Amino acid sequence: MAHEQLETYVVESPEQAMALLNPLRAEILSRLTEPASAAEVARGINEIPQRVNYHLKALEKVGLVRKVGSRQVRNLVEVLYLAIARTYVLSEALNWASDTVQQMKDQGALSHLVNTAERIKRDALALMERSDQEEQIPSATLDASIRLASAEQRSAFVEEYVQLVNQLVKKYQTQAQGQETYQVILAVYPKEGGTES
Results as ranks from 00 to 15, higher is better:
A2F: 15
H3Y: 10
E4H: 13
Q5F: 07
L6T: 02
E7T: 03
Y9P: 03
E12S: 13
P14K: 12
E15G: 07
L21V: 11
L24P: 04
A26M: 04
I28A: 03
L29K: 12
L32A: 01
L32Y: 01
L32F: 06
A38C: 01
A38R: 00
A39G: 07
E40C: 05
E40S: 05
V41G: 03
V41L: 01
I45M: 11
I45R: 03
I48M: 11
Q50V: 09
V52A: 01
Y54N: 13
Y54T: 12
A58K: 11
E60W: 03
E60N: 12
K61T: 04
R71G: 07
Q72I: 13
V77W: 08
V77Y: 08
Y81I: 14
L82A: 04
I84N: 08
T87N: 14
Y88K: 15
S91G: 04
L94P: 12
N95V: 02
W96V: 10
S98L: 05
Q103I: 00
M104P: 00
K105G: 07
Q107V: 13
S111M: 09
H112N: 01
L113K: 09
N115M: 13
T116C: 08
T116W: 04
A117P: 00
D123Y: 03
D123T: 13
A124N: 10
A126S: 10
E129D: 13
R130Y: 00
R130L: 12
S131K: 13
D132I: 04
Q133W: 00
Q133S: 14
E134N: 13
E135S: 05
Q136H: 10
Q136T: 06
I137D: 02
P138F: 10
S139F: 15
S139K: 09
A140K: 11
A144M: 12
A144Q: 11
S145Q: 12
A149F: 01
S150A: 14
R154C: 07
S155Q: 15
F157N: 00
E160D: 11
N166L: 14
Q167R: 10
Y172E: 06
Q173M: 07
Q177G: 13
G178H: 03
Q179I: 09
E180D: 02
T181M: 15
T181E: 14
Q183W: 06
L186D: 07
L186R: 08
V188L: 11
V188G: 02
P190M: 08
G193P: 02
E196T: 09
S197F: 05
